[in-house]
Amino acid sequence: MSGRDRVEARLLPPAQLLATAPWAAATAVMLYGLAVWAGWWAMLAVVVIRVLFWLRAMLKFWAAPDEITMIRRHRQWPDMVPYGPERTEPFTALVGAMLDVTKAAGRSDTWLRIVLRTWAPEAAGMALPRRLVAVHISAARELPPHHLRAVVAHELGHQLIGGWIFASIQNLVATPLSDVFGLPSKVLIAVMSVRTRWEIVPTALMAALYGVFLAALTAAMVPAIGLHSAATLAMVCVLQPFPTMWLNWRGEFLADRVAADLGFGPALFDYFSTRGTKFEPFSFSHPGLITREIRICGRVRDWPSDQED
């Protein structure tokens, strides 16, 4: 990565955590209101339950095994840890892609950990803590080698950004409030990605949705901080998904630049251009493919005439 990219990679995770400050404030306000209304024991009970659920999720998240570990466990306990032969071929392809990418990045063969996953088929690759890259088994089986390398290179970019500690804290302080009261903005983002014209009915429905959630969040905080402060904080919280979306997009752009700088930009461009419709809409977590392709074109200087191996 260039010096500018390294700075952005260091600043992005704390910026994403800072963006959740409104939800952290709203959570603290609602907990204080619960303590005033039902007593401090009720507040402590809610905090303990939330932290226990968070710890359970984080332990499962951070302790996710890689494919090598799963194979070893299967050999030790074949009856308890099943491992089907259908995973052998895609795992071999994934190992080859991983070795090519880590070599291009100047990393050791063991720097990245890889695993085949069977959930969330809409995403070919995912970056998880402890340098684990989870590639969907169908992607490892069906993608051409240069596309698979591009996917792994993009996920390596996410691993270089890191910030898993910040992400864990963000999950603790922002959820579940952000999942519930951030829904109107996330719905609006989803609608904006596929709708170029707005008619009266969709506009009225979105306005009503915002009004209901804003009023509910305000009412939940009024007993603790009063109407004016509660309404202001509720408005900031309801609109908070938009700066978070922008930061999510920055992370995707940065991971794309890492892949391009490692020499996998043309393959990544080709992978995007062959993913269904070319005009794939943007989302809360990912920018549109057209925007990503344009940025890759600006990053790559040497375009090979043939991508296939």
Score class of each variant (00 low, 15 high):
Phe284Arg: 02
Ala259Gly: 11
Trp37Phe: 09
Glu308Arg: 05
Gly263Leu: 05
Lys60His: 13
Met80Leu: 13
Ile68Leu: 04
Gln170Ile: 01
Ser2Cys: 09
Thr244Cys: 04
Ile161Asn: 04
Met80Phe: 14
Ala57Glu: 08
Thr110Ile: 00
Ile294His: 07
Ile169Thr: 05
Leu172Glu: 07
Leu289Thr: 01
Phe53Ser: 15
Val151Met: 02
Ala64Ser: 11
Leu34Val: 09
Trp37Asp: 12
Pro243Gly: 09
Trp37Cys: 07
Tyr32Met: 09
Leu239Glu: 09
Pro287Leu: 06
Ala93Ile: 01
Met43Leu: 14
Thr110Arg: 15
Pro243Thr: 02
Ala234Gly: 04
Leu52Asn: 02
Pro241Cys: 11
Leu128Val: 01
Ala220Phe: 10
Ala21Thr: 15
Val29Glu: 05
Ser185Arg: 06
Leu128Gln: 05
Gly226Thr: 11
Pro121Thr: 04
Glu199Thr: 09
Asp306Met: 01
Thr244Ile: 02
Ala28Arg: 11
Val133Tyr: 13
Arg117Cys: 07
Leu205Pro: 11
Asn248Asp: 05
Arg292Glu: 03
Tyr271Gln: 03
Leu160Phe: 08
Ile71Ser: 08
Ile161Val: 00
Val152Gly: 09
Phe282Ser: 06
Arg130His: 12
Arg295Gly: 09
Lys278Met: 06
Val222Asn: 05
Ala45Pro: 14
Phe61Pro: 04
Cys297Trp: 03
Thr175Trp: 14
Ala174Asn: 07
Val135His: 09
Thr232Tyr: 03
Ala260Ser: 13
Glu86Phe: 14
Pro202Cys: 10
Leu227Phe: 14
Met235His: 06
Asp109Gln: 15
Met245Ala: 12
Ala97Thr: 07
Leu143Tyr: 05
Leu44Pro: 08
Thr88Tyr: 13
Pro266Ser: 03
Phe242Asn: 08
Val173Glu: 07
Ile49Arg: 06
Ala153Thr: 13
Ala231Gly: 08
Arg257Tyr: 00
Ala120Pro: 03
Ala190Thr: 11
Leu289Gln: 02
Val236Cys: 12
Glu308Ser: 06
His228Thr: 11
Val300His: 01
Leu128Ile: 00
Pro78Gln: 09
Ala216Ser: 15
Ser178Gln: 13
Phe181Val: 09
Lys186Val: 06
Leu160Val: 00
Gly263Ser: 06
Pro241Ser: 09
Pro223Gly: 08
Thr27Met: 14
Thr69Ser: 15
Phe269Pro: 04
Met80Glu: 14
His146Asp: 01
Ser273Tyr: 00
Ile161Lys: 04
Leu188Ile: 04
Val81Asn: 13
Gly33Asp: 12
Asn171Gly: 14
Ala45Tyr: 13
Ala123Arg: 15
Asp261Arg: 15
Trp119Arg: 13
Leu233Arg: 05
Ile68Pro: 00
Val194Ser: 05
Thr118Ala: 12
Trp198Lys: 05
Val201Arg: 02
Pro202Ala: 11
Leu183Lys: 12
Trp40Thr: 08
Ala105Lys: 07
Pro78Tyr: 08
Asp5Phe: 06
Arg130Lys: 14
Leu177Tyr: 00
Ala259Tyr: 05
Gly211Phe: 03
Thr102Asp: 10
Leu233Ile: 03
Ala105Gln: 10
Pro202His: 14
Ala208Val: 13
Leu177Cys: 01
Pro121Val: 10
Val300Asp: 02
Ala105Asp: 11
Leu143Ala: 06
Ala64Trp: 07
Arg250Phe: 10
Val101Gln: 02
Leu34Tyr: 11
Ala124Lys: 05
Pro85Trp: 04
Ala64Leu: 14
Val201His: 02
